[in-house]
């Protein structure tokens, strides 16, 4: 793909190869939907819910769908035997920054038809909510939790939507958002101070603690109880 680099005066005339030019135009076309059976079927079945589609990175089909109807479309993609996307490889989000909307990205694969498809939903910054697909693919459980943790997008109907990588009580925001500074919101000293002030009990879920045995009595108190000098055991 590279032209022969000229040397000497020829090169001076021509100047250096512009490094601003992209190496190759691999992306950009919206593509022919008929190349991908699922894209064509999506357009035919959900006309208005399909916003646009394109081919990315040479041969990967991406379809933007209406976030409000995402669950309906994804259910169809999973259950329709002609598509049968039984494997939800990944759920993630992209923040382009400068106040632009966030995008949720679903990467799917069909083990029957050996087809992959990428679905994207656009979410405005003031409405970061979308239906969970956990009821369709159990694999979405943790990846959706991660998106919630890192981007603050909440998934309606998720069975266990808690932070996953950051601590449960992390209050500084969502780290992968572009407005989150690389080094965190507080100074290193403040972060250390907060870490040291943490309560140990906090590391259990409230739900966990209800199953625990009651705390053993202290040895000194146990001796008192045995003597009969202490209060009677209830």
């Amino acid at each position: 793909m590279a032209d022969k680099t000229k040397s000497g005066l020829d090169a001076v005339d021509e100047g250096p190869i512009s490094s601003e030019a992209p190496p190759a135009s691999a992306t950009g076309s919206s593509g022919d939907p008929n190349q991908h059976a699922s894209v064509a079927a999506l357009l035919a079945t959900f006309g208005s819910a399909v916003h646009r589609h394109r081919i990315a990175a040479g041969d990967q089909f991406v379809v933007w769908i209406d976030a409000a109807r995402s669950h309906e479309v994804l259910t169809w993609l999973k259950n329709d035997p002609a598509h049968a996307y039984d494997m939800m490889s990944d759920v993630t989000a992209v923040d382009y920054g400068s106040g632009r909307p966030l995008e949720v990205v679903y990467q799917m694969f069909s083990t029957t038809h050996k087809r992959e498809l990428r679905i994207r939903c656009t979410l405005p910054l003031d409405g970061l909510e979308i239906d969970s697909v956990c009821d369709l693919w159990k694999s979405a459980n943790w990846v959706e939790r991660e998106v919630f943790d890192m981007f603050g997008i909440s998934f309606r109907g998720h069975p266990d939507l808690r932070r996953i990588l950051m601590p449960d009580d992390y209050a500084e925001g969502h780290p992968l958002r572009k407005d989150f500074p690389l080094r965190g919101r507080f100074s290193r000293a403040e972060q250390t101070r907060r870490a040291l002030a943490q309560d140990v009990e906090r590391f259990y879920l409230a739900e966990d603690l209800t199953h625990g045995m009651p705390q053993e009595v202290a040895p000194a108190q146990a001796a008192m109880l045995a003597d009969g000098s202490g209060k009677e055991d209830s």
Binding site: P22, P23, A26, T27, G28, A56, A57, V94, Q107, R118
Partner: peptide, 14 residues
């Protein structure tokens, strides 16, 4: 100093 410029788009490689 600049790095390699990429075209606009996204790519999932498994």
């Amino acid at each position: 100093t600049e790095g390699i410029p990429a075209p606009e788009g996204d790519c999932y490689m498994a």
